[in-house]
């Protein structure tokens, strides 16, 4: 039996301990905000926070989350008001939106953990997340806006 906390709620699971968190969240808990894009840590669509670190849910077996705090896009904030979420809306970052939960989770961890973000920091960290629609220019701008808002 594996126990873990997801978005502040305790859960236990007695299925396949190898099941990636991605499928546990999506299929077992119905938290479909976390997306599938590749299944092999190549696209970042599945990005979650595991004990507040940005983590690929698709390659993280649920057994590794034993006793941990998982947060997903649905639980990032109660009101959708993380500076990253706000900036994403202000700048109309999204196109299809499919990658954006992962982008936001990655960006939120980055903005929250790094005070003086450089362009190089942003490019390096965010290059883990693919966007087939090509929203990268606006993601860059939104992260800068969010970092600014964080600093204030």
């Amino acid at each position: 039996m594996i126990t873990l906390t997801v978005n502040g709620r305790e859960h236990s699971f007695d299925g396949d301990p190898e099941m990636p968190l991605l499928w546990y969240l999506r299929d077992e808990l119905g938290l479909t905000g976390t997306k599938f894009g590749c299944g092999m840590a190549q696209c970042g669509a599945c990005m979650i926070h595991l004990d507040s670190y940005a983590t690929f849910a698709c390659i993280t077996p649920i057994s590794m989350a034993e006793g941990s705090e998982v947060s997903t896009i649905e639980g990032l904030t109660e009101n959708g008001d993380h500076p990253v979420q706000v900036a994403w809306r202000d700048l109309n970052v999204s196109q299809c939106g499919y990658c954006q939960a992962g982008q936001i989770m990655q960006a939120a961890a980055l903005v929250d953990s790094t005070p003086d973000l450089t362009d190089e920091d942003i490019d390096m960290v965010m290059s883990a997340n693919l966007c087939r629609c090509g929203t990268y220019p606006r993601i860059r701008a939104a992260i800068k806006q969010a970092a600014q808002a964080r600093a204030e």
Binding site: T32, G33, K35, T72, I73, N92, S94, Y98, Q100, A101
Partner: peptide
């Protein structure tokens, strides 16, 4: 004009075919 789906997208409450 803000996208009509901005709120859902940024909060993870959209529904795609896979969802």
């Amino acid at each position: 004009i803000g996208l009509v789906d901005n709120d859902d997208i940024t909060r993870g409450t959209t529904t795609y075919g896979i969802d």
